[in-house]
């Protein structure tokens, strides 16, 4: 589906003079709330939307395999952008939120993407906290029970569609410092939690052919009003499913000085924040897509855990459409451990 770029839509947020950072996420946000450390994250309430914050997303990625061991990646993302800080009783078309969603299926040879946009307030898009349901047009991600133990995710686009059932295998995990995830030395941060323990079963339909798949999924939830510092160009983000049910989340925000952080998640859901000097992220090779050069193979090390792996993408060309300016795709890794995960590269 043709449409404006993520960056372009994000630019909706910025005042013309001050589009700063990737997609304007580094601009000031007068009137919106800023994330504060110590704010408790409470479920199920915080599964829902936070309109007092400027940007928010519900992000689901999955590593899937069909019966014949073909690997696939799946993405389902719903973004919310607040154009103005909300006032009381802004109903219907007065709602000042603009929503955008991306869905994708990636195989070694193809990357099929779809985008849709909608305006909030009239019922075409929305998120309910309890029971959890996020929907836009005919795409949805909804819990099948009040406890959010099971969920279904559905989307469709040109050449593909999917309907997958997710089963939760562990608690929701707060990232950063109890959900306050800092992104720069100057203090920009978001509220951030994840659910890395979904197991998945369902079917993909690719060009009319149905493929039964199973695998693992990772959900990210973030909301903030100024995600980046003005000098930061973008980020690299890694989510890795480790052996024995553990998970690892790392990111690097690239700016005048890079800001690196990560979280080592144990199988029981407890977290250990990783410092910058503990993490080493080394791009190994580039893939050129159009004018962009993207590091698609990496060496990732977490010294304190003896973790040293090399990451390679399932499909180096997991570029989100011709005009989309971010890279998102399933990866596999090997080294001190092996497994799968997802990589996201923005700002290149």
């Amino acid at each position: 589906m043709k449409g404006k770029t993520l960056a372009g839509l994000l630019a909706l947020l910025s005042t013309p003079a001050m589009a700063q950072g990737y997609g304007g996420l580094g601009s000031d946000a007068p009137g919106f709330d800023m994330p504060k450390p110590g704010t408790p994250i409470v479920f199920p309430k915080d599964h829902g939307a936070h309109p007092r914050f400027r940007t928010e997303w519900w992000y689901l990625t999955a590593n899937l395999h069909s019966a014949d061991r073909t690997a696939y990646g799946m993405q389902w993302t719903l973004f919310r952008f607040g154009l103005e800080p909300p006032r009381e009783s802004q109903e219907g078309w007065e709602d000042r939120n603009v929503w955008m969603a991306h869905a994708a299926v990636t195989s070694a040879t193809e990357n099929l993407v779809a985008e849709t946009r909608s305006r909030g307030g009239v019922g075409t898009v929305g998120v309910e906290a309890q029971p959890f349901k996020a929907y836009i047009d005919d795409w949805s991600f909804e819990a099948l029970d009040p406890g959010f133990d099971k969920a279904r995710v559905v989307a469709r686009g040109p050449g593909f569609s999917y309907s997958l059932e997710l089963t939760r295998g562990g608690p929701f995990v707060l990232q950063g410092d109890a959900g306050f995830s800092q992104k720069a030395d100057t203090g920009q941060a978001s509220h951030y939690y994840s659910q890395p323990f979904f197991s998945v079963e369902g079917a993909l339909s690719l060009h009319g052919q149905e493929v039964k798949v199973a695998g693992k999924a990772w959900m990210d939830r973030e909301w903030s009003s100024q995600t980046m510092a003005p000098d930061q160009k973008g980020w690299d983000w890694f989510s890795l499913h480790l052996a024995n049910g553990e998970a690892l989340m790392l990111f690097r925000f690239r700016g005048a000085r890079d800001y690196v952080s990560g979280n080592w998640i144990s199988a029981d859901g407890s977290t250990a924040l990783l410092g910058a000097d503990d993490i080493s992220l080394t791009p190994l090779s580039q893939t050129a897509i159009g004018e962009h050069n993207l590091p698609t193979r990496w060496r990732v090390q977490v010294k304190s855990r003896g973790f040293d792996i090399e990451i390679s993408p399932l499909n180096p060309r997991s570029w989100m459409g011709a005009n989309f300016s971010y890279w998102e795709g399933p990866i596999s890794f090997s080294g001190s451990q092996s497994g799968e995960g997802y990589l996201e590269l923005t700002g290149y």
């Binding site: 589906m1 849709t116 909608s118 009239v122 019922g123 075409t124 929907y135 047009d137 005919d138 469709r156």
Partner: peptide
Amino acid sequence: LFVRLRRAGVK
């Protein structure tokens, strides 16, 4: 009716 159509995937 508009909402119904969009929810059914008609753009």
